[in-house]
């Protein structure tokens, strides 16, 4: 079971939409960050079980943030959330160590899937 979730996105609306799409009574401790750099700091402080990461952000973009976080914690479970789901974006994100890429805007269905796959990956790491 996942206990905590970090949402990294520069758009407050995007973060709000993600929270709205979470299953009811998810019981997750939620942390938020408005750019990649804040995201890295929040990760360091809270060590969340799962991170949802936007790509296009000011100060530090999502690619760099994934790289930083995976540098801090090679077992960090990160799912990237972006509208630009080109094959090469998906591949690059994968090469940086993210679990997979989900398409923006999210839906209840896509977030339920994210939590399930995130939980699976997190359980693997725990072993």
């Amino acid at each position: 079971m996942l206990k905590s979730l970090l949402i990294v996105d520069d758009s407050p609306v995007a973060r709000m939409i993600i929270k709205k799409c979470l299953p009811a009574e998810h019981g997750l401790q939620i942390y938020e960050a408005g750019n990649g750099q804040e995201g890295v700091e929040q990760y360091r402080t809270h060590n969340p079980d799962l991170t949802l990461m936007d790509l296009t952000m000011p100060i530090m973009n999502g690619f760099e943030a994934v790289e930083h976080i995976r540098g801090l914690d090679p077992e960090a479970v990160i799912i990237v959330s972006t509208a630009d789901i080109q094959e090469k974006v998906i591949q690059r994100v994968k090469d940086l160590g993210a679990l997979y890429t989900m398409k923006k805007p999210p839906s209840k269905k896509s977030l339920t899937e994210a939590l399930e796959r995130g939980a699976e990956a997190f359980a693997q790491v725990q072993k």
Partner: peptide, 21 residues
């Protein structure tokens, strides 16, 4: 303003991906 910005971000992101694919 926040919603508008996010809608445009998503729209232009999707347009980028779909033009390529």
């Amino acid at each position: 303003k926040d919603i508008l910005q996010e809608v445009m971000n998503i729209a232009f992101g999707q347009a980028t991906a779909e033009l390529a694919e």
